[in-house]
Nucleic acid binder design. Structure first.
Lengths: 239, 239
DNA sequence: CGTCGATTTGAAATCTATCAACGATGGTGG
DNA sequence: CCACCATCGTTGATAGATTTCAAATCGACG
């Protein structure tokens, strides 16, 4: 089981949470499910009556484009909520898929409503989560729209470094990233073949090493310089 | 002045609004500003204390990428709110710019809070607006990431047709679209030159005509077929 | 009339996709 | 234990899409 809730870890980067808020959050940990790797957690069209919070593992949002190609909309890591605003839409218009094995916590909407009314700071925190996800989405749009292949991959790797770091999952500039090159292509709008060649270049330039489903960033500054990475959009550093 | 509020028009596609809700929304119309074309309405870094609702005209969200290129994140049309979730982030991490002259309504956050607590349906409506914008953002990501140039432009033109139609601003398959080819490029991740060539192809294929800042869609089905357009993601048709 | 921005055109360069194939790896069942 | 299969990473050659650069045209407007 998870002793330290990554959701709380993430929120505490930005908010000061009183002890009762944290225990209330922890106590909602009742429904924890374990899901195998590479399986759909939620499908487009579903109307989930719970919120899904990732406690452990690695997943993604994706859509199948009308041409049949899979597109990864965003990566989900511990502390991320999979389906924050679907209740407003009625049905999912995208799917959620695990990439590694995952521990997922299901929180009924009523519990969320109860928590946010009892603790206004949680209401603000959830809105903040949603707004940060939108900001990441905007940055992905820029990534795919206006950066060349090398920068796209580099930028994505920088983003994941910062996001994993925010939940204390980075040690010596390396983090778990159990994604295939095909996944990376679907996330950056590139072909598998081209992703492969880009990764080779980044490796030759001594910027990163991809080994055993882990990314080792050898030269953080070099990678960030190549990607022109500016982490402001992640809104993690309290201003 | 505006007699029919496009925001209400949009919401009534999805929600049944009681008369008192509508009059409450209308009466908030106090602060209406007129802004000239091609001017920044809000800048990145600002912390606006109002919500900005477009009543008339055409605008866009944009960011300047670290390489200096302007990227258009989304188009804003009458009935759209420019900065729905910035209050959760503290400061804007993007900018808003008018493309045509605009009438913009400024609503103080307190008024919004008051309205949403008095009328829960408005709270749901705002969440719905936010969720739809996220869905559009996802589709733009797919557009730029996985479609070829012709499809990108065609898809964007289809989307705008449906969105303008939802606020009754389409007559005989044509709508106001006061955007330059450079803007279109910034929105689709293409160069001006290439946008120009794509538009010529679409014109030659008798799919659209671009004249006097208006788009005339000559062959709706043909355009939608080329773009493989499916309007489901706009969540406008009540299921 | 001259200027500025927007559209258009042409030619060449570059990036990325496509196609096809091979090797490595890991799991599975006989 | 080995053969088999599926998935993933890798490579080479070629085609195609898009960018880049440079310049011409057009239209609106003071």
């Amino acid at each position: 089981m998870i002793e330290t809730n990554p959701f709380i870890t993430k929120l505490e980067r930005r908010f000061v949470l009183a002890t009762d808020v944290k225990t209330a959050l922890q106590s909602a940990t009742a429904h924890v499910h374990t899901i195998g790797p590479r399986t759909d957690l939620i499908r487009g069209g579903d109307t989930p009556e719970h919120l899904h919070l990732i406690l452990h593992g690695f997943a993604c949002r994706y859509k199948i484009a009308s041409g049949g190609e899979r597109c990864i909309i965003s990566y989900l890591i511990p502390g991320d909520i999979c389906d924050l605003n679907v209740s407003a839409l009625g049905a999912m218009d995208y799917s959620i898929r695990t990439l590694s094995a995952c521990e997922v916590m299901r929180i009924p909407h009523e519990v969320i409503d109860d928590l946010t009314t009892r603790y206004p700071i949680l209401d603000r925190a959830l809105r903040w989560c949603s707004a940060v996800e939108e900001a990441i989405s905007r940055e992905w749009l820029i990534n795919v729209g206006r950066r060349v292949a090398d920068q796209r991959i580099a930028h994505l790797l920088c983003e994941m470094l910062v996001r994993f770091n925010a939940i204390n999952l980075v040690t010596t500039d390396s983090y778990n990233f159990p994604t295939t090159q095909a996944d990376l292509g679907d996330a950056t709008g590139l072909t598998v073949v081209h992703v492969n060649r880009v990764l080779q270049r980044l490796r030759n330039d001594k910027l990163i090493v991809f080994k055993e489903r882990k990314v080792h960033v050898l030269d953080v500054n070099g990678l960030a310089r190549l990607a022109r990475f500016d982490q402001g959009y992640l809104h993690l550093t309290s201003t």
